[in-house]
Design a binder for these strands. Structure first.
Length: 293
DNA sequence: ACCCAGGGGCAAG
DNA sequence: CTTGCCCATGGG
């Protein structure tokens, strides 16, 4: 067991913030999950972290962004009052660094799903490809080749719904043609995102999530409904027409700078804390999609 | 019987 | 380059 000092770190906030989906909170107060397919059980007691498992200390520090102090994290953030306030109320929340493929698969599965359900899908995928084993520890996340070797129906049975086709085709692409993930790190963010969008089920938002949570590129800026809502709420003049996605990326770059992705983590988490269930487009009187007999 | 969910793809306008 | 609809499933 490893014990390490982790001041200004909030394990629960970090694992529950919609960055990673392979961790589950246990009744005994611990978190069970995987650090790059190494099973771990982690308990936080104040500034101390107890980790059960075979992960090494550098690995753990890297995974949880503990190789820099909270002061260093704050120093990276753009000098913007909204971002500062959000980060202050999320003290200890860090940026995860998950594996490329698992992160890709997670976010392909994330569309029109809530965080607990994405977590359930992650679990179901591990279970589907390791029949007979206990989920934890031991059930590694299935590789692209493993998924590609099975029929799409297996993914549907795991509850992926229409995401099954996307994930299966993305896995097939990876297994047959390969994919240069490390190459994404040396490309301009726009081109890196475009390259990821080659994968079925990966669009602009998912691409930026992968670049931020697996590539740890702080210039990636996932634009989901929450972030669009927040940008509109805090930065756009009321009454003005809602900007499109490329315009919002440009705005974020200009206004929040090169570490806008880090800012996004705090804006997202803080925004969700404050507004549990916001109605966005008053969908009240929308014409009926379809008449059923 | 609704509405909504950390979207993406595709066809039309 | 925008809008509209579909894609399955679970939860409120």
């Amino acid at each position: 067991m490893i014990r390490l000092e982790a001041p200004d770190f909030d394990l629960t906030a970090t694992l529950d913030s919609g960055q990673t989906f392979c961790w589950e909170f246990q009744p005994d107060g611990s978190w069970q999950g995987w650090i790059h397919d190494i099973p771990c059980r982690i308990v936080q007691k104040g500034p101390v972290l107890d980790i059960e498992g075979d992960a090494t200390e550098p690995m753990i520090r890297r995974y949880f962004q503990l190789d820099e102090t909270w002061g260093a994290v704050m120093a990276r953030l753009p000098d913007d009052p909204v971002v500062r306030a959000a980060a202050e109320s999320c003290r200890g929340l860090r940026c995860i660094q998950d594996g490329w493929w698992e992160c890709t698969a997670n976010f392909i599965c994330s569309s029109l799903k809530q965080i607990p359900q994405i977590r359930r899908i992650n679990r179901a995928l591990r279970a589907s490809f390791q029949p007979g084993t206990r989920i934890w520890p031991g059930a590694a996340f299935p590789s692209p080749a493993q998924i590609a070797a099975e029929p799409e129906s297996l993914l549907r049975a795991a509850g992926l719904g229409f995401r099954a086709r996307h994930l299966h085709r993305a896995a097939t692409h990876m297994a047959t043609l390969g994919f240069d993930y490390p190459g994404l790190l040396s490309l301009p963010i726009r081109e890196a995102a475009a390259r990821l969008c080659i994968l079925p089920g990966v669009g602009d938002k998912v691409a930026h999530c992968i670049l931020l949570y697996a590539g740890r590129r702080y210039d990636a800026f996932p634009l989901d409904v929450w972030m669009i809502r927040l940008l509109r709420q805090h930065y756009l003049k009321p009454g003005r027409r809602l900007a499109n996605i490329p315009q919002m990326h440009r705005f974020a770059e200009k206004h929040l700078g090169e570490h806008r992705g880090l800012a996004q983590i705090y804006l997202f988490h803080d925004g969700r804390k404050q507004i549990p269930k916001p109605p966005l487009p008053s969908a009240k009187h929308r014409s009926r999609k379809r008449m059923r007999s």
